[in-house]
Design a protein around this nucleic acid. Structure first.
Lengths: 217, 217
DNA sequence: TATTTAACGTTATTTTTTTCACGATTTAAT
DNA sequence: ATTAAATCGTGAAAAAAATAACGTTAAATA
């Protein structure tokens, strides 16, 4: 199987699990880990782990398991964490600033190279080591740093406009924190990070738990 | 089908889609919407929309579609958005403060009633209308406001300890922004909001797109 | 009022994903 | 050097989910 083929297709659910395996591995101290260990920690079954890993054509050792470091390497490669990607943030509100200040991104090969806002009060303010720039500077920062990812941290009313602006300026992927469905051309990657949505999950689970409890009685 | 039964089981993927339908409906002005409209906007097919809605036993009108407001009501009910839930935040760093300041939660029946930190420098600082309190105040705030959900916004090293603390104090669900797998007893709901994980998705998609492009040539 | 039509609801089919089962491989022990 | 034991890898079976097909219903129109 060639390198091209192996990234060609496998189930979305597997991809999501691979991300989880990756995180688990970063928290693992031992040299080897078995599919059963992984499965137990995640509450799934080991065959599924083995199958997922077979999609990326990663081989374990019988009787020993998977070599943690080399599997981690492989997964980091799969997710493109080994090369640095430059990212800009649009919106210097609380969230935008929180992201710009977050130290953990470097582990993922992410570098924040610019933060923008249209509020004159915010422009020129420092955010960590960056200075908030007006929106017209997006173009030159994108060119200068070869930026592929744009992060939207503006209120939902402004989100679509900013998305358009980013696309115009050559952004390839949008990380969208605004709670709206953006309309962009097919070749633009959009990943929604609508944190309010998780609240739906939590509240739903709480509700259900209560119903279950009521049902038991 | 009784109310109890109808929340009993349906596919996880359907639940996720229902959340998306809900958001779409909040952005919809017309009185009715058809399964086809919904499907088109989301890039899925209409039968799937109808099937998802059949799980919650919601009936549309032939030739007309679904009544937007009443479906929205139904979904809000399903996700427990109609009643207010009190929430606390542990960790008054950039992220914790960003969350405490976020105005959008009220739409989801969420009220932030406390923010906590162990850093003496942060204690007593104002965050919006709240004052940062030391960790030992968690207990009384939880009791006073009947808090069910605790939000973890502390560095990953501290996350497990805070989780334990929250559980001790009677928290039922944890909204975890720290990038670690928390170990808690089975009856505690944990929803991970590891935003770095989305970066894996974005980077992977970017990588794959490049491979595809290379393959075309 | 009968007819047409658009969109729903649901059963059947197909596809996808997961689980099962078992042979193959590697290490360790006798 | 054999044998035993643990764990992998993978094809087959089962389960779950998505899609297709089609009958049903309600609105609109003649």
């Amino acid at each position: 199987m060639s390198k091209d083929e192996r990234t060609l297709y496998f189930p979305k659910a597997s991809l999501d699990r691979l991300k989880i395996y990756r995180r688990l591995l970063t928290e693992t101290d031992s040299e080897y880990i078995s599919s059963e260990d992984i499965a137990n920690k995640l509450g799934i079954n080991p065959e599924l782990v083995r199958k997922d890993l077979s999609y990326i054509n990663y081989k374990g050792k019988p009787k020993v398991g998977y070599h943690v470091q080399s599997l981690l390497d492989e997964l980091n490669e799969l997710f493109g964490l080994k090369k640095t990607t430059n990212v800009i943030i649009v919106g210097a509100g609380h969230l935008g600033r929180a992201l710009a200040n977050f130290k953990g991104f470097s582990k993922y090969g992410i570098k924040i190279v610019g933060i923008f806002d249209n509020d004159p009060q915010k422009i020129n303010q420092f955010v960590g080591e960056l200075v908030v720039l007006p929106l017209d500077y997006i173009n030159r920062v994108v060119r200068r740093f070869n930026v592929e990812i744009g992060t939207i941290c503006v209120p939902e009313e402004a989100a679509q406009k900013i998305a358009d602006l980013l696309v115009q300026n050559g952004i390839k992927a949008i990380w969208n924190f605004a709670p709206v469905k953006l309309e962009v051309s097919e070749d633009i990657i959009v990943v929604d990070e609508d944190i309010s949505q998780s609240l739906l999950t939590i509240k739903h689970l709480l509700e259900r738990k209560q119903l279950e409890k009521a049902g038991e009685k």
